[in-house]
Design a protein around this nucleic acid. Structure first.
Length: 195
DNA sequence: GTACAGATAAACT
DNA sequence: GTTTATCTGTACA
């Protein structure tokens, strides 16, 4: 079942760990690509220095202010895209960065997007690390700026599905966020070890 | 397996 | 001009 609007309108620190174990699904040109979310980070409000919206409402961060359930995709380090899921009410800027997924379906499509060849022509290491980082995930799924501001609740091409997978909350580890120079004291990264 | 430089563009000072 | 919510190739253990 597709995750409903109410899921995203809750406090971000509840939504973030709840996303773990859900499937990210994308009906791309090349076919269906699907993966289980295993790692996320929360970015909450204008008081969070690491949150892009802390600098105010700009063209880049506009979708972060939209109603929960939309995508926020931006270009980082000049060459990689990062996928976020917007949370909470309209005009409150908060989002969850999807940092990693475990490939479930469309593995050959992901290999084509990342390495330009099907899985049997890739090394084992390449397949193991297909989508275990925010930039890799977007490349594997072929997500770019053109998928920014999509409504995950209404879209039939890009959405998050709940397959009833039960995650033991005690198995979810919490650490400081990655690559942040400020506000690293916040334990807002959630992930499943061994994925 | 870890350690480093390098690539590259948008947003900000 | 500097920083950035990253990844890859090369070097060496």
């Amino acid at each position: 079942m597709i995750v409903p609007r109410s899921f995203y309108l809750r406090p971000t620190l509840e939504v973030a760990p709840d996303l773990i174990g859900k499937n990210l699904v994308y009906h791309s040109q090349a076919g269906i690509v699907k993966g289980e979310i295993t790692e996320v980070e929360a970015y909450i409000g204008q008081d969070d220095l690491a949150c892009h919206a802390a600098a105010g409402r700009t063209p880049r961060t506009e979708t972060m202010f939209w109603e929960g359930g939309h995508t926020y995709i931006y270009l980082i380090y000049g060459m990689y895209y990062c996928l976020n899921v917007v949370t909470e009410a309209k005009d409150y800027p908060a989002a969850v960065l999807i940092r990693a997924v475990r490939p479930i379906e469309g593995i050959d499509i992901m290999c084509q997007n990342r390495f330009g060849k099907v899985s049997k022509h890739c090394t084992a290491a390449q397949v193991t690390h297909l989508s275990d980082g925010p930039g890799k995930l977007c490349k594997a799924f072929n997500l770019t700026k053109s998928q920014n501001a999509i409504d995950l609740v209404k879209s039939s091409d890009l959405f998050i599905e709940d397959v009833g997978r039960r995650i033991d909350q005690s198995k979810i580890l919490t650490t400081p966020r990655i690559g942040i120079r400020q506000a690293t004291e916040k334990l807002w990264r959630f992930f499943l070890p061994g994925s």
